[in-house]
Nucleic acid binder design. Sequence first.
DNA 1: CCCGAAATCTCTAATAATGAGACTTCTTGC
DNA 2: GCAAGAAGTCTCATTATTAGAGATTTCGGG
Lengths: 275, 275
Amino acid sequence: MSGQSSLDKLIAILDLFTEDHLEWTPDALIKATGYARPTLYRYLKTMKEAGLLTSLPGAGLTLGPRVVEMDYLMRKSDPLVHHGRPYLEGLTATWPATALLVRWYGRRLLCIDSEVSTTNPLSSYPRGRPMPLARGAISRSIMAFLPRKTMMAMIEENLSDLNSIGLGATPPEIAESLKQVRKQGYAIAYGEVTPGVVGIAAPVFDAASTPIASLCMTIAGNLIASDKLDQISSRIRQCADEISDKLGRIRANDTEMAGGDVPLETADPKERKFT
Amino acid sequence: MSGQSSLDKLIAILDLFTEDHLEWTPDALIKATGYARPTLYRYLKTMKEAGLLTSLPGAGLTLGPRVVEMDYLMRKSDPLVHHGRPYLEGLTATWPATALLVRWYGRRLLCIDSEVSTTNPLSSYPRGRPMPLARGAISRSIMAFLPRKTMMAMIEENLSDLNSIGLGATPPEIAESLKQVRKQGYAIAYGEVTPGVVGIAAPVFDAASTPIASLCMTIAGNLIASDKLDQISSRIRQCADEISDKLGRIRANDTEMAGGDVPLETADPKERKFT
DNA sequence: CCCGAAATCTCTAATAATGAGACTTCTTGC
DNA sequence: GCAAGAAGTCTCATTATTAGAGATTTCGGG
C-alpha cells in the first residue's frame, strides 16, 4: 500500500496504534498490514525488544514503556517546560482560567504543559493534545511571526479554515490581519477552538528569535470585561517574552518589546535543548 | 556493532537520544553510528516524517512530537490511570504524602501517574520515571504476586540487590519473605529507594488476576507512628483492590480479600485496554 | 499427557539497503 | 551580489537483507 522500506513498514505498524484502536492482536495486525506471519512476528519482536510495543497479559499488544520514558525524557529536559511552568502557575493564580504552553513542530501544534484554576474548565488541554493548526489564538500568535515565506505557505494550505474565521478572503488579506497580531504581540480568539471560551496567546521565541511555541490562556467568555482583556493580554505577552528571554533569545532590534532587560549568560548547552 | 537489520539500526538511532544527550547533529550521529552520510540521512528522513524525531530550529535533532502524542494516547485511554486517579487524590488528601501508580512492564517499572500533597516532597515521581526493579515496596508488592516461575527467575536476576535489602540470602529464603508480602497484601520499605522515606505499596491486578501495577504511597519517615502505619497500609491495600475490581478482575478464590463486593459488568473492550 | 493455537525456525529467491561520489540547495561572509 | 562552504539529496552498481512458504517448536489448558 504505502510502505516500501522496512523502516516505513515499522512506522506503518506504529501508525496502527491509534486512539480508537490502541490494542491489537498479532493476527489482526497480519490482516491489517498484509505481511506474512513470520514477517510480522519479526517486526513485533524488534519493536517489543525496543519497548515501543508491549504485550498485554491478556494476549494483545499496545504501545510500550519506551514511549512513556521518551516523553519523560523530553519533559524533563525541555527548557520550555522548565521555564514556562512558573508562568502557567502565576497566570492561573491571578485569573480563573486555563493556561497552556503549546509547542510548534512545523506541522503540528502540541500542548506541552498546562495548568488549570477554574473549578470546571470547559475543555482540557493536557500535554500531548494536538491543537488545530489554523484556528485559535495559539495558531495565529505563531503564524504571525513566521518568516514571510513559511507564513504564506501555511496560509495557502489552510485557506478555508482561515477564511471561515473571518481573517480575510485572500492570502494577502490574511497576511495583513496577521500583521496586526505581529504588531500587538499577541492574538485573541473568541470561541474558535472551544465555543464560549476566549483564548489569548503570545509567541515564545528561541535563541535565534524563531517562534517555537505559544503561551496561551483561555477564559470562559462571560467573565471578561473588555478593559480587563487588555490587561490580561499584555500580561500574557510579557510572560511569553520573559520565557523567550530565559530561553536565551537575543533581543534583536526589538526595542518596542516589553519586559525587563535581563542580560543573558552564554547559552549553556543544557539550556539550549529544543531551541 | 550491534544492529544488523535496518529496524535495529533505526532503534539504535533512537537509543542515542538519552538523558545526557538529547540533542544531536546529523554529523554527530554519523560518527556515533558509523553509517554513511546518505544512509543516515535516509533514516533521519523517515524518522522525521514519522514524527519520532524533529529538527530544532538551531540545526539539531531531538525526539519529536510523535512521542508526546503517543504518550498522550496511552494516558488518555489507560484504564489504570483513569481508575487510579481518584485514589491518588484520595490518599494524598488524607495524608501529607506522595501517592503513585506504577505499572509493571515485565522488565521495567514505570511510574504512570502520581499526586503530591506534601509541601516539599523528598523526591518526585512524575509519569515515566523508572523505578528500581528489585528495591522498594513497589517492586516487592508485585514480585510477591507473580507466578512462581517468573518470581524465581526475577529473584535470581536481582539476587544481590535483594540480599542487600535484607530479604534473605538465598532465593528460597527471599521467596519466603515474599510469601509474607503476599499474605499481607502489601509491602513496606524503609528508605530503600529514597533515604528517610517510607514506602507502602499494594498490587493492582488485571481481569485475569495478573499483577500489572502497584499503588504506592511514600511518606517522610519521621511522620509515621507504627499504629498509623497499619491503618495506612490497609487503606492502600483496599484502594488497590478497588482499582483491580474496576479493571474487571475476577475475584477468584480470594474470599480473604478486603473491600466491597462490587459486581462487575462484563469487561467492556474500552476497559480492558492495557490489562 | 495430549491437543490446538501461538510463535519461531529454515532456507532460497528476490528485493531492498548501502555508500562513493556527484550534484543541489541554502547560508554566510566578504 | 557573488562566491565559498556546509548541509542535504541523488544516482547507481554491488551486496547484504528481507520476505514468505511450510515445517517445527513452544505454550497453555483440559
